[in-house]
């Protein structure tokens, strides 16, 4: 019996099994891990040599010595000198924190309501949450432009029901408010689903036990339901917080000129100013800022798996 299952567990008995691991492993090393080393290197190089048209970076290992002697922290110094970048970082973090909080505030009641719905209804509800995610992100953000524009549908709606005078307009488009709306809208499924799966797994008899022991429902929520859903809260928050911090499309399409987000800055440096090293330095620092949340996220995922 043990001999039968053994070959499946061990890599050593059959070298062909190495391929199963090796192919995806090497692919990710080459196309996911290696680029980070390169981005790190470029962030330390001069604008002149790294700008296109541009000499390939790999000139054999002999070039390694040159590389070390040419280390140049100019880009990083520039980042710290110019308040624009610092402000963009802080603003990104602020927007990400606030949005994540808003997402929790809206997503938690939704997830809870889904988890408490009749069992027969739940798959449909999950489907309804997932479905918008299958339609393009860009399209969904774009849809909000038509709604939030000063002469858009929200203004029309508010004018029609009489909350607004015929000459007033909603001044949300191209402000941070529009960015919050766009982010909450786009990321809501990512927040609801981990929360739902944590809440749905919860044993209802625990709440009955709490009630039986004299705990009224609202108190039972804070003593039992919420603490037990914490893994879902953390997973959902990280899944939202990390990409929001580097978000580009939403602040670009819905935000105003004064909406500072680091993803937008990076994009501008790269596509607008063609300053690749500076863009790389921005990316490296963004990455460093996200290391801790990413590690938290990974630990959470490992526990689930």
């Amino acid at each position: 019996m043990a001999n039968v299952s053994e070959p499946l567990k061990s890599l050593h008995t059959n070298p062909a099994r190495w391929l199963v691991v090796a192919v995806p492993y090497l692919w990710l090393l080459l196309f996911f891990a290696a680029p980070f080393l390169i981005i790190f290197k470029i962030s330390l190089s001069d604008t002149a040599i790294a700008m296109p048209p541009y000499t390939p970076l790999f000139q054999g290992f002999g070039a390694l010595g040159d590389f070390v002697s040419n280390l140049d922290f100019e880009n990083y110094l520039f980042l710290t000198d110019d308040p624009l970048y610092i402000n963009a970082y802080l603003s990104s973090l602020r927007i990400a924190v606030i949005s994540t909080f808003l997402l929790l505030l809206i997503g938690y009641p939704m997830a809870l309501a889904m988890a408490r719905a009749p069992t027969s209804l739940r798959p449909t509800l999950v489907m309804l949450v997932i479905l918008p995610f299958w339609t393009s992100f860009l399209i969904r953000v774009y849809a909000w432009i038509g709604i939030l524009k000063p002469d858009g549908l929200l203004t029309l709606f508010l004018q029609t029901i009489g909350i607004m005078g015929p000459d007033d307009q909603v001044q949300i488009f191209r402000t941070d408010y529009a960015v919050f709306i766009g982010i909450v809208y786009s990321y809501l499924p990512f927040m609801v689903l981990p929360l739902y799966s944590a809440l749905e797994k919860m044993d209802n008899t625990l709440l009955e036990a709490a009630s039986d022991l004299g705990c009224p429902p609202w108190k039972a929520f804070w003593k039992i339901t919420f603490p037990l859903s914490l893994p879902g809260v953390i997973a959902g928050s990280m899944i939202c917080f990390i990409p929001i911090t580097g978000e580009f499309v939403i602040p670009d399409l819905l935000g105003g000129a004064d909406t500072l987000m680091i993803g937008k800055t990076l994009w501008t440096e790269f596509f607008g100013n063609r300053d690749w090293p500076l863009a790389s330095a921005v990316a490296v620092i963004l990455l460093l800022a996200l290391v801790i949340p990413i590690v938290i996220f990974q630990n959470q995922q490992k526990k689930v798996a």
Partner: peptide, 20 residues
């Protein structure tokens, strides 16, 4: 009378111990 105000207590089949 809601369960949390009844002078009865129950031992659940699944025990329903609070895991946290």
């Amino acid at each position: 009378v809601p369960p949390y105000r009844r002078p009865t207590n129950m031992m659940f089949q699944s025990y329903a111990l609070f895991p946290h």
